[in-house]
Simulated scan of single mutants.
Amino acid sequence: MPEDPIAHSELAALTRRFEETSAQDSREFGIIKSDLTAVRLQVGNLDQKVENLSSHVTQRLDGLERKIDGFIDEQRTVNATMVELLSSLVGKSTGE
């Protein structure tokens, strides 16, 4: 059977298109892989920043809780002192 020049031409064109598409796909895959690596690095950095921020907030809240506890203790002492003073005045007239 003789070779068909049109069929060879079509086959060559299809082969070229396949190779061009394959090369383009490889480049695009490389770009996507590179972008994915960059995103992973950014997520890692953000994760570390969130962890540091969480630690900082926890420390600040602990300090605030200690201050509030101290204020409540001081207020209890003041209230107790006022009750003692008022109790000592009960039954006394204002002229004494």
Rank of each mutant, 00 (worst) to 15 (best):
1 M>T: 11
2 P>D: 07
2 P>G: 04
2 P>S: 08
2 P>K: 01
3 E>A: 15
4 D>K: 01
4 D>G: 00
4 D>Q: 00
4 D>T: 00
4 D>C: 02
5 P>R: 00
6 I>M: 10
6 I>H: 10
6 I>F: 15
7 A>C: 03
7 A>P: 03
8 H>S: 15
8 H>C: 06
11 L>D: 14
11 L>Y: 14
12 A>Y: 10
12 A>T: 13
13 A>E: 14
14 L>S: 15
17 R>S: 11
23 A>E: 12
23 A>P: 02
24 Q>S: 05
25 D>M: 11
27 R>S: 11
28 E>D: 13
31 I>R: 15
32 I>L: 14
35 D>F: 03
36 L>P: 04
36 L>A: 12
36 L>C: 08
37 T>G: 07
37 T>W: 02
37 T>C: 04
38 A>H: 04
39 V>Y: 05
40 R>A: 08
40 R>Q: 10
40 R>M: 05
41 L>V: 03
42 Q>F: 03
42 Q>D: 09
44 G>P: 01
44 G>M: 00
47 D>I: 00
49 K>L: 06
49 K>T: 06
55 S>E: 10
56 H>C: 04
58 T>W: 08
58 T>E: 15
61 L>G: 02
62 D>T: 09
62 D>E: 11
64 L>S: 12
64 L>Y: 14
65 E>C: 02
65 E>Q: 13
65 E>K: 10
67 K>M: 13
67 K>E: 11
68 I>P: 02
69 D>C: 01
69 D>Q: 09
69 D>I: 00
70 G>M: 07
71 F>D: 05
72 I>Q: 11
73 D>A: 13
73 D>I: 00
73 D>R: 13
74 E>A: 09
75 Q>L: 09
78 V>H: 04
78 V>G: 01
80 A>E: 07
83 V>F: 06
